[in-house]
Design a protein around this nucleic acid. Structure first.
Lengths: 181, 181
DNA sequence: CCGAGACTTCACTCCTTTCTGAAACCAGTG
DNA sequence: CACTGGTTTCAGAAAGGAGTGAAGTCTCGG
């Protein structure tokens, strides 16, 4: 039996470490990844104090982590029948989670970038209209347009992934070939 | 003229801010992104002191930033003919940069994850062999295998992007459908 | 309504990361 | 071969982020 629970602890630790590394690289807190992994690997929903105990986090940290996860729709309250404590369970459709976060975050990020590069282009175009002989401005505009093109491609990429869950890249490849080559 | 240089400064600032945001999200330092953007938008290679001046960074910070960029092959020393100062210029093939970084970093990251999930599975399988009636172990193994499957798909995705520059996803979609649905 | 336990919030601390400034180092030059 | 910039390195300062712990708020049973 100690054999089994040791194995269980070891496996959970491995997974939690790994997930927290992945998720941290993706801009979340590592501890948030730990909490999710713990719930994901539990057959039963867990109360906050158990989570705190197994992750070695304070009650406050667990509360904040759970809140973040709830906001992303990655963790649920389980219908705790009659219990005093609230029980939490993990959303298990990881693919859906990834898509949601990408849609909410990466898509906005890249969208802002597209906007800003567009603004920069506009500023330059206006200045060039007033100073047609300034070759440096023209040069910069060319480069900025390059960035804008890439950002636009990136946006379509992220968008298609967020919406359909897959990349459909043939149009984007074409854009790449013609715009950038 | 002041009109033109104002526009130039404004456009560069917009782009540098945007790139540093993108790049910071991707795990680099924001100041590194600034330095690269400055070089990318300059028609001529620039010496370190000019970079320091325009980015408001100290000489030391610029030196370190340039070193990081050089290590990634994202910045070059320009063949400074006879000059005392060393001149630096940006790699302009952004697509190639992205692929290189993904290959060197993301691919390794996900590869490690695949390895670790595999290890976790093995631990659990062994424990289950010794304790066939432990339903919790079996449950956890199922979940870990789910993570392993996703990580494997992710690995192929990143790999195909790093190698070919594009995602070729039909096989992965199939894997998804059959493994996860 | 009151009390008890559970959850949340937040000011503070600790730790990590980034930047600075100065000293050491190096490469051309007279 | 010493001198003059220019560049790199590095110890320490500053900034930023995450976690704690205790005080505050909520909820539910009695």
């Amino acid at each position: 039996m100690s054999d089994a629970s040791e194995a269980r602890a070891k496996a959970i630790e491995l997974c939690a470490d790994t997930m927290s590394e992945l998720i941290a690289f993706w801009g979340f807190k590592a501890s948030t990844g730990r909490i999710w992994t713990l719930l994901y690997l539990s057959p039963e929903p867990l109360p906050a104090d158990v989570i705190a105990e197994r992750t070695n986090l304070s009650a406050g940290a667990v509360s904040m982590g759970l809140q973040e996860l709830k906001q992303w729709g990655i963790v649920d309250r389980a219908p705790s029948s009659g219990e005093r404590k609230r029980l939490f369970r993990a959303e298990t459709d990881v693919w859906a989670i990834v898509r949601r976060v990408i849609r909410e975050r990466e898509l906005r990020l890249v969208g802002r970038a597209v906007q800003r590069f567009t603004d920069a282009s506009a500023v330059l175009e206006k200045a060039i209209a007033a100073n047609p002989d300034d070759t440096e401005l023209t040069f910069i505009l060319g480069r900025v347009r390059g960035l804008l093109g890439l950002a636009t491609i990136g946006y379509r990429l992220v968008e298609s992934f967020a919406e359909r869950g897959l990349f459909t890249l043939d149009p984007i490849r074409d854009a790449l070939r013609s715009a950038d080559g």
